[in-house]
Each structure stands twice: as C-alpha cells, then as structure tokens.
Simulated scan of single mutants.
Amino acid sequence: MTVNEGLRAMAGFFILLSVALGNWVHPAWYLFTAFVGANLLQSAFTRWCPAMAILRRIGLREEAPRESTSH
C-alpha cells in the first residue's frame, strides 16, 4: 500500500465512522466529518497533510514500484 492509498483509506474510514456516530450517537460527530473533508480539500491545494507524515513514518512507500515492460 502506498501513502496515497493509505491516506484515501484513512479518510474514507474516518468519514464513514463519523457519519455513523453522527447518526447513532450524537449529531456533533458531523463536525469531525467536516474536519476530514476540509483537511482533504486544503491538502489538494497545499499538497500537505499531517496524516501523510504519519503514514510515511509507519513505513508506507511513496508510490508502487513500476513494473518493467521489457523482457
């Protein structure tokens, strides 16, 4: 798994979790959903996201190795 794939998986998990908690526990959890969305939006423009530093630190690679097409 790459850093970008890990970031998408983490964001998706947190969004689904916070929507579920907002629905079944308390509507204030929707604020966490908004926070994740705002962080994704700002990272699209700044190319900086705190979660990416964490994912790199735990050992995820930057991109998948390229397969050679020559034999």
Rank of each mutant, 00 (worst) to 15 (best):
M1Q: 05
T2P: 05
T2F: 03
V3S: 04
V3K: 01
N4E: 15
N4H: 08
N4S: 14
E5G: 03
G6W: 12
G6C: 15
L7R: 15
L7E: 07
R8C: 05
R8Q: 12
R8K: 14
R8D: 06
A9D: 10
A9L: 15
A9N: 10
A9Q: 13
A11R: 14
G12C: 10
G12W: 12
G12F: 11
F13G: 03
F14C: 09
F14E: 08
I15D: 01
I15Y: 01
L16D: 06
L17N: 01
S18T: 13
S18P: 03
V19F: 09
V19W: 08
V19K: 07
A20R: 04
L21V: 02
L21S: 00
G22H: 05
G22A: 07
N23Y: 13
N23I: 14
N23P: 01
W24Q: 05
W24E: 00
W24D: 01
W24H: 05
W24A: 03
W24T: 04
V25L: 14
V25F: 11
V25Y: 09
V25C: 06
H26Y: 11
H26F: 07
H26M: 05
P27H: 09
P27M: 05
P27Q: 06
P27K: 07
P27R: 10
P27Y: 06
W29G: 00
W29D: 01
W29I: 02
Y30L: 12
Y30C: 02
Y30Q: 01
L31E: 05
L31Q: 13
L31N: 10
F32N: 02
T33G: 00
A34E: 01
A34M: 13
F35L: 11
V36H: 02
V36W: 08
V36I: 15
G37E: 01
G37V: 10
A38K: 05
A38I: 12
A38R: 06
N39C: 09
L40E: 00
L40I: 09
L41R: 03
Q42S: 03
Q42T: 10
Q42Y: 08
S43C: 08
S43A: 15
A44V: 04
A44F: 12
F45K: 00
T46K: 07
T46Y: 06
T46W: 08
T46E: 01
C49R: 03
P50V: 13
P50T: 02
P50G: 02
A51L: 13
M52H: 08
M52P: 00
A53P: 00
A53E: 14
A53D: 13
A53N: 10
A53L: 15
I54H: 00
I54W: 14
I54S: 00
L55A: 01
L55S: 05
L55W: 06
L55M: 08
R56I: 04
R56Q: 12
R57L: 15
R57C: 00
G59T: 10
G59H: 08
L60G: 01
L60V: 07
R61H: 12
R61M: 04
R61E: 05
E62M: 00
E62H: 09
E63I: 09
E63A: 13
A64Y: 08
P65R: 13
P65K: 09
R66F: 08
R66E: 13
R66A: 14
R66K: 15
R66P: 02
E67A: 08
E67Y: 07
E67K: 11
E67F: 10
E67C: 03
S68C: 09
T69Y: 10
S70Y: 14
S70W: 13
H71D: 10
H71P: 12
H71K: 12
H71G: 11
